[in-house]
Simulated assay, not measured.
Amino acid sequence: MSRNLLHVNKLDAFKAWMTSVGIEHRPGRGGYEVLQIKTKKGAWQCVFRRAEMPEHYTVAHPIEPIVRRFINDNRSRERESEQSNADPT
């Protein structure tokens, strides 16, 4: 498990991003599962709520690359936006 990888405020954006890139996901089950994500191997893996650190979610190891790709894509978009809004002088 990877702790503190996905911030709570980013969950809706993460779900929208997965939908846009064709990654299947569904709601979690139980009190600690927030989301289930289908991996390339066809298994469902979970994003978990953390009792001791409620501002971040923990992700199962097999979906860590998906979350990192989302984070990197977001950073790239933010940099591009900043560069296009920068004053050329």
Rank of each mutant, 00 (worst) to 15 (best):
T58D: 01
R75T: 06
I66Q: 01
D87I: 06
I71N: 02
I71W: 03
R26Q: 15
T39Y: 00
A13M: 07
D73T: 07
V47A: 02
D87P: 01
G22Y: 06
V47Y: 00
R69E: 01
A13P: 01
I63D: 00
K10G: 05
Q45Y: 07
D73E: 14
A16Q: 09
Q36E: 12
V67R: 04
L6R: 00
R75W: 04
E33N: 06
N74W: 15
F48V: 05
P54R: 12
P54N: 14
A60Q: 08
R77Y: 12
S20T: 15
N4S: 11
Y57G: 01
K38V: 06
L6T: 05
H25G: 03
G30F: 10
A51V: 15
F48D: 07
A51I: 15
V21T: 13
F48C: 06
G28A: 09
R3I: 14
V47H: 01
E80G: 04
G28P: 02
V47Q: 02
M18T: 03
H7A: 11
E82A: 13
V34Y: 01
E78M: 11
F70W: 02
G30V: 08
E33D: 09
T89W: 12
Y32T: 08
A16F: 10
V59N: 01
G31Q: 12
P62F: 02
T89I: 12
R3S: 08
M53T: 14
R50V: 11
L11S: 02
H25N: 12
H56S: 10
M53V: 15
E78I: 14
V47W: 04
G30Y: 08
T39M: 01
L11I: 09
V8K: 05
E80L: 14
Q45C: 10
K10I: 02
L5E: 02
M18Y: 00
D87F: 04
H61T: 14
F70P: 03
M1F: 11
L35G: 02
R29E: 10
A43I: 11
D73K: 09
L11M: 05
S20L: 13
G30N: 07
D87R: 11
S84P: 02
N74D: 11
V67H: 06
H61I: 10
N74S: 14
I71Q: 05
N4T: 09
W17A: 00
E55T: 13
S2I: 08
M53F: 13
H7D: 04
